[in-house]
């Protein structure tokens, strides 16, 4: 499924966070969103996820409008997201953090196996029964990544996925994102380091990823 954003605008009071932004991410593509702090990157993600309602414009997921829907509906429609500052459920164990994901009609045993599998992928299996509140910042980012793996979304929005992470952990994350791309997931990546989308683009096994500036006003979201 592709994510299509057209003419999106959003203001907070007199501050125009987004001004007529249009962009699209297609399956297997990685789109890097860059810009100085305050450029509106997070607002863009919040609008897509349903935390904020845009003033104007349209957001379409596989041709279906998702603009203004509740975050849980957007999530079920197939959009996954991580946060710049990782947000885990502190009073649940690492494993439980994955089991809270609403089952899509599959028996709980299968979700359980998938949760373990995801934890192994992000190298958190040994911490499965620790509380998420006990994890370090980097480990919490990995846990968020595991949550995405469980959800199996068609479109993933990463907000600074590598910021503040040790290079070993970065590699784990990048590997997983690359694998998602190979499974035709559309990836949108907010970052300050233009190298990351390029690195992903080089790894992309089937289709080369693209890195391009969005067709909005460059002053607001600079490419």
């Amino acid at each position: 499924m592709s994510l299509q954003i057209s003419n999106l605008s959003k203001s907070y009071g007199r501050v125009r966070a987004l001004n007529d932004v249009s962009l699209a991410v297609n399956p297997g593509e990685v789109l890097g969103i860059m810009g100085v702090n305050g450029a509106g990157k997070s607002t863009l993600l919040n609008c897509i996820c349903g935390f904020a309602t845009p003033d104007a414009g349209a957001i379409e997921l596989g041709g279906r409008g998702i603009c203004g829907q509740r975050p849980d509906h957007v999530s079920r429609a197939g959009v996954g997201r991580t946060f710049q500052v990782p947000r885990s459920f502190r009073s649940l164990t690492v494993l439980e953090n994955l089991l809270v994901v609403p089952a899509r009609g599959e028996p709980s045993g299968i979700l359980f196996d998938r949760a373990h599998h995801a934890l192994e992928k992000v190298k958190l299996a040994t911490l499965a029964n620790n509380y998420a509140g006990e994890l370090s910042g980097g480990q919490q980012k990995l846990l968020e990544l595991a949550r995405i793996l469980i959800l199996e979304p068609q479109v993933v929005l990463f907000d600074e996925p590598l910021a503040g992470m040790h290079s070993d952990l970065c590699r784990v994350s990048l590997d997983e994102v690359a694998e998602m791309l190979s499974r035709s997931v559309a990836v949108m990546l907010v970052c300050h380091d233009p190298g990351i989308p390029y690195r992903l683009a080089c790894r992309g096994p089937k289709r080369p990823g693209r890195h391009r500036g969005p067709s909005g006003r460059p002053a607001l979201i600079g490419g």
């Binding site: 975050p71 999530s75 996954g80 885990s88 459920f89 649940l92 809270v100 994901v101």
Partner: peptide, 20 residues
């Protein structure tokens, strides 16, 4: 678990599809 998750972080719970 979902109720606890909502208590911990409403936004994060919603983003994984929990109907808070």
């Amino acid at each position: 678990l979902r109720l606890k998750a909502i208590g911990d972080d409403l936004d994060a719970a919603q983003i994984i599809g929990v109907n808070a």
